[in-house]
Design a protein around this nucleic acid. Structure first.
Length: 638
RNA sequence: GCCGACGUAGCUCAGCUGGUAGAGCAACGCACUCGUAAUGCGUAGGUCAGGGGUUCGAGUCCCCUCGUCGGCUCCA
């Protein structure tokens, strides 16, 4: 018998008979490894355990501990789901079924919509397939054979057609189901215990709204039941933190069918939080030499024609006509962006290099007609307020301005709110304007600014706006979800359209660079993110009510009211729970409202002129003077 | 905009195959006057999202509109 050798990740080699598979290598290393093996790699490429190896190959075994394991398991689960669908809906046509974050999906085209009951029967059938422990068998075809093999499967045939000529096409078969697939897969369906079908959704074939809409089934799959349970727990936790639910419970805002979708109404407590955020940020911006402006909510269509929005952003804008009464009819558009106003202010007078950089900011409320399917609480509203700023500067100043913005981002996101974040730089897309020199200077300035701040960034090649490159900042919240808020964009287009110039030191006119930037993005969306990040328990400085006063009985009401006034005049937001209820009921209500401090007021406190302080997570922290308590609360400001 | 699900009291939800609406919490009233997460009793509260249709009869079945949810798409 001829022996060949395989190299292992630890540097050792192992002898196996010719014709041995990856699984044979695993067995040769040890039976425990063989039992745990899911797939392998040969010379760095992922393969099945059944792959025959050649002499000198570098072999690694993928076990549940390997980072690739989950991906393989999820992809295999997608195939099992497809088999179940094929069993139950023999006429189904198959789209694609990849592994995704936390799970997998598969797109199907069947003659009627799936129902939730279908989902149950598909899942039941999947469990049967798993218990049958079917093997995943790899097959290799050429293009013609593949074409024949997928008769009646137009989506699969479309995929085959696009594969490069001469490429080896592989299929995977388990039971009666064969799928076009690169692989690898786990050796047996028996290894796929921990999965659950999650939801149904429509999805255009290849994400193209002109193509047929398929039905997508999402599932989640994990290596162990314990991991699956933990995932489901995380989902439950996310649901508990949902800002729409908390917004209702904490009486922050509401939506009204008669008012229109995506238009939030802020109640006193919600308005308070938004104003607190604005006041704090405004002070930070003044400190950084920004100037604040206020611009109208609407303009005549002329402005939108100059800016290009009339032509290119029309579908997302609210336009209306008004009869001026003298036979003239004017068309107006409500602003979807604040830039034109800022450009007009810049252009209002002659500017000199001495005026630059000019940092203009506005809490500007904009309205965008988002498509009805995408509005989502505060996260995706049709009316929202941006912490918007435009910096007009010279090419040489771009770098320092961007560094300063990144400083501000770090201060706000990491130091004040405790978000970790990452950066992405997007470069010139195919369809774009402006000469190469502008793009070069701008892109290098953005990257250079990240580097100067030691901020690692990913590059999204060709993903910039048509008018300039950008940096996007992605936050990671308390439960690991990511959000995009801050964005810094260079714009070559608008200064040109509005004819902006400045007088240089050589007494010539030059076009300024313009940077768009938001830190929080949309105030309301950021509010939503904060609600979810803190699970509704906003930090003391942002809490709409910082302290609830809890008189133990009616005879303490007067002291409570007097204390509340003292706290308010010291700058503490306080409220008396004066209802005639036992104190434990009031405490329960205050806890539910996630108020940072509860002040218990009984005979003892009246006598000593103190407040009995209960902190929302620590519980009773003892009595202190009103003044000491106020100091404590005020010290929690950033 | 597209696909699917959903919309019952202020909130959370029940209401089987069509026979004329129910609970808990909240509200209001009365009693209790209380020491760190929910006191008892009582009262009131609904053109079952809106409109149209089928039917002797619609919260329940069908259609349209609005809104919500989950996706897709878009995000000058």
């Amino acid at each position: 018998m001829v022996e060949i050798s395989a190299k292992l990740p630890d540097g050792n080699t192992i002898k196996v008979p010719e014709g041995a598979t990856v699984l044979d290598v695993a067995s040769a290393i040890g039976p425990r490894l063989a039992a745990a093996a899911l797939a392998g790699t040969v010379n760095g490429s992922l393969v099945d355990l059944g792959t025959v190896i050649s002499d000198g190959d570098e072999i690694a075994i993928i076990t549940p501990k390997s980072p690739e394991a989950l991906h393989i398991v999820r992809h295999s689960a997608a195939h099992v789901m497809a088999e179940a669908v094929k069993d139950l809906f023999p006429l189904a046509k198959f789209g694609i079924g990849p592994a995704i974050e936390d799970g997998f999906y598969y797109d199907f085209d069947i003659d009627r919509p799936f129902t939730p009951e279908d989902l149950e029967s598909i899942e039941t059938r999947m469990r049967e397939i798993v218990s049958e422990e079917k093997t995943f068998a790899r097959g290799v075809l050429d293009k013609l054979e593949a074409w024949d093999a997928f008769e009646g499967q137009p989506y699969k045939r479309e995929l085959i057609e696009e594969l490069p000529e001469g490429e080896v096409i592989s299929t995977y078969t388990q039971g009666a189901f064969t799928d076009l697939c690169r692989g690898p897969h786990v050796p047996s369906t028996g290894l796929l215990g921990a999965f659950k079908l999650m939801k149904l959704a429509g999805a255009y074939w290849r994400g193209d709204s002109t193509r047929p809409m398929l039905q997508r089934i999402y599932g989640t799959a994990w290596l162990t039941q314990k991991d699956l349970d933990a995932h489901l727990m995380r989902l439950e936790e996310s649901e508990k933190r949902d800002h729409r639910k908390l917004g209702k419970e904490l009486d922050l805002f509401s939506f009204h069918e008669e008012a229109g979708a995506g238009l939030p109404l802020y109640h006193p407590k919600g308005a308070r939080v938004l104003r607190l955020l604005q006041e704090w940020l405004r002070a930070e911006l003044y400190r950084r030499d920004y100037v604040e402006v206020i611009t109208p909510h609407m303009y005549k269509a002329d402005v939108w024609k100059i800016s290009g929005h009339y032509e290119n952003y029309r579908d997302n804008m609210y336009f209306f006509e008004i009869d001026e009464g003298d036979g003239k009819v004017n068309e107006y558009g409500i602003k979807p962006m604040n830039c034109p106003g800022h450009l007009m202010i810049y252009g209002n007078e002659g500017r000199s290099y001495r005026d630059l950089p000019m940092r203009m900011f506005e809490f500007g409320t904009v309205y965008r007609h988002e498509m009805s399917g995408v509005v989502h609480g505060l996260m995706r509203a049709r009316g929202f307020t941006q912490d918007d700023a435009h910096i007009f500067c010279t090419a040489e100043q771009v770098h320092d301005e961007v560094v300063a913005m990144l400083d501000l981002v770090d201060y706000v996101m990491r130091q004040v709110f405790g978000f970790e974040y990452t950066a992405e730089v997007s470069t010139r897309p195919e369809k774009s304007i402006g000469d190469e020199k502008f793009w070069d200077v701008a892109t290098k300035s953005l990257m250079g600014a990240c580097e100067a701040r030691g901020l690692a960034y990913d590059v999204n090649e060709g993903d910039g706006a048509f008018y300039g490159p950008k940096i996007d900042i992605k936050l990671r919240d308390a439960i690991g979800r990511t959000w995009q808020c801050s964005t810094i964009q260079v714009d070559f287009n608008l200064p040109e359209r509005f004819g902006l110039t400045y007088r240089t030191t050589e007494n010539s006119d030059a076009q300024p660079y313009m940077l768009h930037r938001t830190i929080l993005g949309s105030m309301e969306r950021f509010f939503g993110i904060l609600i979810e990040h803190y699970a509704g328990a906003l930090p003391t400085w942002l809490a709409p009510v910082q302290a609830v006063l809890i008189p133990i009985s009616d005879r303490h009401l007067e002291y409570a009211e007097q204390t509340r006034r003292e706290l308010e005049s010291a700058g503490v937001r306080a409220e008396v729970y004066s209802d005639n209820e036992p104190m434990r009921v009031k405490i329960a209500k205050a806890q539910q409202q996630k108020v940072p401090y509860m002040l218990v007021l009984g005979d003892k406190e009246v006598e000593s002129a103190e407040v009995g302080v209960r902190e929302r997570t620590q519980g009773d922290i003892g009595a202190m003077s009103i003044e000491a308590f106020a100091r404590q609360v005020l010290s929690e400001r950033p």
